[in-house]
Amino acid sequence: MKTLLTFILILFVIQLAWAQPPHIHWKKRKTVPIIDLQLFHSTQVVNLPTVETIRKGEFEFEISHRFIPPLDQKGAFLGIDGPVNMRIALAYGITDRLLINLGRSNREDNLDLRLKYKLFWFRHKTFPFSIAVRAGTAWTTQVTGGHRSNSRNFQYYGQIIFNTLLFKKLGMGIVPSYLYNSHIYCQEIQTTTTLGSYMQYYLNTIWSLYIEMNNTMNGYRHSNDAVSLGFEIETGGHFFKIFLTNSQMLNPSQFLAGADLGYFASGSTKNWRIGFNITRILKF
């Protein structure tokens, strides 16, 4: 009898133990999904591409202008009276890493089709970087002499894009490019190799400043290397870029062949013109 009572007492103790906060079996997961590394915010700086793409199934609409008259041309209101070179384009995210883009510039009615693929990225606290490749073809459909379907009216280009973002503020990029058939009117087929570079400083969540250069390393070039600098305003779906540039070209096959104006003309601003790019992400 005594043993039995002792046993019941032990059970009471167990009961008290069970009365403590319950033991929950649910366990917190240890891993959280990893997001693709994104360094720059938009898919291009001015003319040169960044590594960034858009998500699968999204569209990106672009409208860009380069006002041809330089800033100080009389009666042209800083060049805004025009005429202008204009590009309209639509990009589509085939996958999260593969972007296709079809655009048209009114400059010689140049059609541009290109693909960009985000190859690789490396996460690092101080020096994260990512690499992409871009290739495209352009077709000049408004030609002087000859038929527009002539193979000489087609140009091809390829680019490798290296990006990094330092201190989460300063984006930097290098873009070696190769252009085949740089000038469709040259007797012999010309090629151009350039080394593009840019920096973009993100002042806050909305505003940023940037400078972009594209230096010709080898082959055909128009009068000068292209330089652009300006500011960017971004919202959740738009980018507004307003800048000064010495190039009037928009499509890569035309831009990579050099700029018409010199940017270091002393004591004058006449060699710069105004341009803008506006892009909008769309999802249907």
Partner: peptide, 9 residues
Amino acid sequence: TGIGLRNRH
């Protein structure tokens, strides 16, 4: 949010 860029923001 439906748009990758907005997600990032």
